[in-house]
C-alpha cells in the first residue's frame, strides 16, 4: 500500500516535470522535447536545455531541501506548525543574501544564506530562552514569527534601496522566485543537498528515538544534546540551501511534511523524511509550473504561487485545530 502511494508522488513529480519542460512562452511538443533533451538538436534544444531544465531542477532541489527541513523540524519539535518558514529562518537567510547583494559582498550565496538562517535560528533559540526551562513550542513559534517579521521588514527596506537593475533580484530574496536559474545553481543545490542528505542518513535513527520523548531516548543510549543539535543544524542548513537558490519561498516547508505523509501514509522516520522531500519537490515544481502557465505571457514569482496555495492550507489547518480544540 505504502509503496504504491510512494509511487503516486513519484508519478506526479514526473508528470509535473514533463509539463514544465513542455509548457511556457514557447510550447514544445513531445517529439521536439525528446529531440531537444536527448539528442540536443531541433528547435527546442536551447529552450529546454538552457532555460527550462535548470529552472525545473532548481525547483525540485530547493523544494526537496525545504520539504526535508520542514519535516525534520516538525518531527523534532512534535508540532506541525514548526517549519523554517514559519519560524523565520527562511526570512533570515533571505535577508542575509540581500545584505550581501546590497553591500557588494561577493561570497557564495549558499554560504551567506546558511549564515543568515543560522543566525536567525540562534536568535530564535536565544530569545525564547527562559532561565532553567526548555522553551515550549508555542513560544518558539511566536518568537520565530517575530524574527521573521523583523527580517522581512529589513529585507524590504534594503530591497527598496537597491538600484532598479537589481530590483528583480531583490524581489527574489523577499518573496522567492526561480527566474534566471542556471546550471550553476542546479549544481549548487543538488551538490550541497546530497552532502546534507548524507549527514541526515546518519542521524535518522536518532530522530526516530527522539520521537519517543527525551527520557526514553536517553535511556536507549542516545546523546540528547548532540543529536538534537546535529539534526537542527542539518535542518537549518537544508532550508538555507533551498533559500540560496529559490529565495524564501513561503509555506513549502510547512506543507510538504503533512502533505507527503498524508499521501504516502509513511510511518518510520526515514520514510516520513523521504515523503516530505518528495512532496516539497512536487509542490515547488508544480507551483512554478502554475506560476508560468496560468497566465500566458506573464511570469509570477514562484513564492506568490506557493503563498496562494499554502495560505489556504494553513487556514484550513487552523480551522481544523479550532474544531478539535488543539493548539
Amino acid at each position: 500500500m505504502s509503496r504504491l502511494r510512494a509511487a503516486l508522488i513519484a508519478a506526479l513529480i514526473a508528470l509535473v516535470c514533463v509539463l514544465s519542460l513542455m509548457i511556457g512562452a514557447v510550447h514544445i511538443g513531445p517529439c521536439d522535447l525528446w529531440r531537444g533533451l536527448i539528442d540536443n538538436e531541433g528547435p527546442a534544444a536551447f529552450t529546454v536545455r538552457v532555460l527550462r531544465a535548470p529552472r525545473l531542477l532548481c525547483a525540485l532541489g530547493a523544494g526537496a531541501a525545504l520539504g526535508l527541513s520542514g519535516t525534520i523540524f516538525q518531527m523534532l519539535l512534535r508540532n506541525p506548525l514548526a517549519a523554517p518558514d514559519v519560524m523565520g529562518f527562511n526570512a533570515g537567510a533571505g535577508f542575509a543574501v540581500i545584505v550581501a547583494i546590497s553591500t557588494g559582498v561577493n561570497w557564495p550565496m549558499p554560504l551567506v544564506a546558511a549564515m543568515g538562517g543560522g543566525v536567525a535560528a540562534v536568535l530564535v533559540a536565544a530569545l525564547s530562552y527562559r532561565r532553567g526551562r526548555m522553551p515550549d513550542n508555542l513560544t518558539l513559534i511566536l518568537v520565530g514569527l517575530g524574527v521573521g517579521f523583523s527580517a522581512s521588514g529589513l529585507s524590504t527596506l534594503l530591497g527598496l534601496r537597491l538600484p532598479d537593475t537589481l530590483a528583480a533580484e531583490a524581489q527574489r530574496w523577499i518573496t522567492g522566485s526561480l527566474s534566471a536559474r542556471s546550471w550553476t545553481h542546479v549544481a549548487q543545490i543538488w551538490g550541497l543537498g546530497a552532502v546534507l542528505c548524507a549527514m541526515l542518513v546518519v542521524q535518522v535513527r536518532g530522530l526516530g528515538l527522539l520521537q519517543l520523548g527525551p527520557a526514553l531516548a536517553a535511556g536507549l543510549g542516545l546523546h540528547l544534546g548532540r543529536s538534537r543539535a546535529g539534526l537542527l543544524a542539518t535542518a537549518v542548513l537544508l532550508a538555507a540551501c533551498g533559500v540560496a537558490v529559490a529565495g524564501p519561498v513561503p509555506f513549502v516547508a510547512l506543507m510538504a511534511g503533512p502533505l507527503g505523509i498524508a499521501i504516502t501514509r509513511a510511518r518510520g522516520p526515514a520514510a516520513r523524511l523521504l515523503a516530505g522531500a518528495g512532496s516539497g519537490a512536487l509542490i515547488t515544481a508544480a507551483a512554478d509550473l502554475l506560476a508560468r502557465a496560468l497566465w500566458l505571457g506573464v511570469q509570477l514569482p514562484v513564492g506568490v504561487m506557493t503563498g496562494l496555495l499554502g495560505a489556504p492550507y494553513l487556514l484550513w489547518f487552523l480551522s481544523r485545530a479550532a474544531k478539535e480544540g488543539t493548539l
Binding site: L81, L138, F251, G307, A311, P312, L314, L315, L318, A321
Partner: peptide
Amino acid sequence: VRLILAGVALNAL
C-alpha cells in the same frame, strides 16, 4: 498562537 498564525496566513493569501 492560532489567531496570529491565521493572521499570517490571511496576510500571505
